[in-house]
Design a protein around this nucleic acid. Structure first.
Lengths: 250, 250
DNA sequence: GAGTTTCGAACACCACTGATGTTCAATCAC
DNA sequence: GTGATTGAACATCAGTGGTGTTCGAAACTC
């Protein structure tokens, strides 16, 4: 999938979400692509659960409070994510055992850990795939049910895998973080996995780009005080610092 | 990776295994490729643990009793594997829960199950990846440590995942099968995972191409009598049939 | 330490794959 | 029944990845 195609998918997703529903011809005119291409795109997006096809067009299935699918988030804020990931990777010492959350920022962390001599348990199959070719690190796969698209592992098998282990460090991504509301996630299942990851680790690092600070999502994960450090690309957050959290600016 | 490249890798693997060690120039002459390409190939094979580089050449690390790496087996006996896989897939009914072993034959089964409405727990990340884009089936990932190359999940996390569940059917691949020696595998860890898979399933189907019948590998898994059916491409095996196993010829 | 060999990074080239557009027959809605 | 919509099939094109060549650096030999 090329950048070109991804940006068109994103454009379609947003246009359909804003309008509620749109016709194939409208989308073709909007994007400059042929109707056939639009149909193929809609098929892809329908498979991801973003929207629903009907004859002549598609209607959005995106709730206001849910996040866009993984494939459409991967190259948003790339630069910030890379910087944050590099800082997080630098905070991990050789020989450590790390549990790595799902999400695009944590996937960047995974890529940077590929050649390190550590033990990693990623909570998303995307990160598992990024790391499975490594010979230097010990890769542990948690059990679970992968959520479509996101490929984040959830459910009782995941919780059992986490509760059986104790990690030096947990690297957690999230959908919202503030001193008052704490760490929040869009998905309820995800939230309980994050909570389990946090409680099985001695040190907790949150990797959060600026767009997520001061935002709040549906599912509560943990209070800000349970984080040992927050790595972000924004200037130091006053409230978080006041809550006793070490804020690292990447 | 093209067919061309894979067959050259296979050629190199075999030549180095037979000779014990070979020089880059020898391999270039043998394959007709440039020395640079040979060096790149040797790097790939070294990463897979097939051989060890030294200045000017490489020496084989393949034990006589171990199997060649996954990437080199994928398109051997393709036709037979496809036929076997199709037969196995046909023996699985909608709504069933299936545990699917690692190996190239079972990976073909996974591909055929992609759009079925069943529950599948693959024991290899290759199969997980083949199935993770499906919306129709319920995919369960077992925990564990993926073995490099093969990406078969092993270890206590895998055993725990299996013992927590009860499946309708287990589809088992193996490295050797005979009425007298039973089911055998090259890897000890794999063997215990296969055993756990067998004991957590009500029905056990073995998918075995002809090259594995009458062969025996190091690790004993289970007696032939614990199999409910054997699907193979060879003509019905007399001994197995005599042992009370249903032999299905694909 | 000089000479030779091997290595690997960088670049150019080529084949192939995968995305896109076009056409057309089949299908669906009214 | 009529018109719009769809998806399969084929042609086209761009990007990717594998391969070869060159050349400077490193390593091994003597």
């Amino acid at each position: 999938m090329f950048n070109h195609a991804v940006s068109r998918l994103k454009q379609i997703t947003e246009a359909v979400r804003d309008a509620g529903s749109l016709g194939v011809a409208d989308l073709a005119a909007l994007t400059g692509a042929s109707e056939m291409t639009i149909r193929r795109d809609l098929e892809v997006l329908a498979a991801q659960g973003v929207l629903e096809r009907f004859r002549g067009g598609a209607r959005s299935l995106l709730l206001r409070c849910s996040e866009p699918p993984f494939a459409l988030r991967t190259d948003e804020n790339m630069a910030a994510k890379r910087r944050i990931a590099a800082t997080v990777a630098g905070m991990i010492a050789d020989g450590e055992s790390v549990v790595l959350d799902s999400g695009t920022t944590c996937l960047e962390v995974a890529r940077l850990l590929h050649d390190r001599r550590i033990t990693v348990m990623p909570l998303s199959l995307h990160a598992v795939n990024a790391l499975s070719s490594s010979t230097s690190l010990t890769l542990l796969v948690p059990g679970g049910r992968p959520r479509p698209g996101e490929l984040a592992l959830t459910g009782p098998l995941t919780l059992a895998s986490l509760s059986a282990l104790r990690f030096d460090t947990a690297v957690i991504g999230c959908c919202g973080l503030s001193a008052a509301q704490g760490l929040t996630a869009f998905d309820l299942e995800d939230a309980s996995v994050k909570r389990a990851a946090i409680s099985s680790a001695r040190r907790v690092i949150a990797a959060v780009d600026a767009s997520k600070l001061s935002r709040t999502a549906l599912a509560f994960v943990a209070p800000a005080s349970s984080l040992d450090a927050v790595v972000t690309d924004a200037d130091g957050d006053e409230d978080l610092a006041a809550a006793g959290v070490t804020v690292v600016t990447a």
